[in-house]
Structure formats: structure tokens, C-alpha cells
Computed example of a mutant assay.
Amino acid sequence: MADTTVSVNVRFPQAAADGVKALADIQGVTVSDYIRALVAADLEKNRAVLNDYQNKLAELRRKMKE
């Protein structure tokens, strides 16, 4: 399956938005790129949990078809 890009709306308190903007500016990236990098790092950190979830979900779906 090819990767598909989806848009997700996220709301932040003004102080958090200001902080994210400042950190993105410091790193020389857009706010979107900064947030994408944070999410990618968290997904990678939790890769084992996500793989386990996907495996168990597939197993449950197989059982439901029986």
C-alpha cells in the first residue's frame, strides 16, 4: 500500500502555539515540519507497541470471519 498524506486539524492554546513556532524558527523549519518530526519520533519510539497492536487487530479480524 502506498503512503497517503492526510490532513489533521489540531488546536493548541496560544502559549503552546507560540512555543512551537519559536522552536520551529530556531530549527529553521516550518511549524508543520516541526510537528511532523515530533510525531514521527514518537511513532518510532512506540514502533513495537504499534506492531503488536496491528498484529492483534489482524488476528481479531481473522477470528471474526470464522
Rank of each mutant, 00 (worst) to 15 (best):
residue 1 M to K: 15
residue 1 M to C: 14
residue 2 A to R: 09
residue 3 D to P: 11
residue 3 D to F: 10
residue 4 T to M: 07
residue 4 T to Q: 12
residue 4 T to E: 11
residue 5 T to P: 10
residue 7 S to I: 09
residue 8 V to G: 11
residue 9 N to H: 14
residue 9 N to L: 14
residue 10 V to N: 02
residue 10 V to G: 03
residue 10 V to D: 05
residue 10 V to L: 02
residue 10 V to F: 09
residue 11 R to S: 02
residue 11 R to K: 10
residue 11 R to G: 02
residue 12 F to K: 01
residue 12 F to L: 02
residue 12 F to D: 00
residue 12 F to P: 02
residue 14 Q to F: 12
residue 14 Q to I: 14
residue 14 Q to N: 09
residue 14 Q to V: 15
residue 15 A to E: 15
residue 15 A to W: 06
residue 15 A to V: 10
residue 17 A to C: 03
residue 17 A to E: 04
residue 19 G to H: 04
residue 20 V to Q: 00
residue 21 K to L: 02
residue 21 K to F: 00
residue 21 K to D: 04
residue 21 K to I: 01
residue 22 A to H: 01
residue 24 A to K: 01
residue 25 D to H: 05
residue 25 D to Q: 03
residue 26 I to K: 00
residue 27 Q to P: 08
residue 28 G to D: 02
residue 29 V to D: 01
residue 29 V to W: 01
residue 31 V to I: 01
residue 31 V to E: 00
residue 32 S to M: 05
residue 32 S to K: 13
residue 34 Y to W: 01
residue 35 I to R: 00
residue 36 R to L: 01
residue 36 R to Q: 05
residue 37 A to F: 04
residue 37 A to Q: 03
residue 37 A to C: 03
residue 37 A to D: 08
residue 38 L to Y: 08
residue 38 L to H: 05
residue 39 V to I: 02
residue 39 V to G: 11
residue 39 V to M: 04
residue 39 V to K: 08
residue 40 A to W: 15
residue 41 A to K: 04
residue 42 D to T: 09
residue 42 D to P: 05
residue 42 D to N: 13
residue 43 L to F: 13
residue 44 E to T: 15
residue 44 E to L: 09
residue 45 K to S: 14
residue 45 K to L: 12
residue 45 K to N: 14
residue 46 N to S: 10
residue 47 R to F: 11
residue 48 A to V: 11
residue 48 A to E: 13
residue 49 V to E: 13
residue 49 V to A: 15
residue 50 L to A: 07
residue 50 L to F: 06
residue 50 L to C: 06
residue 51 N to M: 13
residue 52 D to F: 10
residue 52 D to V: 08
residue 53 Y to H: 07
residue 55 N to K: 15
residue 56 K to N: 04
residue 56 K to W: 06
residue 56 K to Q: 11
residue 56 K to I: 06
residue 57 L to Q: 12
residue 58 A to E: 09
residue 59 E to L: 05
residue 59 E to D: 08
residue 59 E to G: 07
residue 59 E to Q: 07
residue 59 E to S: 08
residue 62 R to S: 06
residue 62 R to Q: 03
residue 62 R to H: 10
residue 62 R to E: 11
residue 63 K to F: 03
residue 64 M to Q: 14
residue 64 M to N: 13
residue 64 M to L: 14
residue 65 K to M: 13
residue 65 K to D: 13
residue 65 K to L: 15
residue 66 E to G: 06
residue 66 E to V: 08
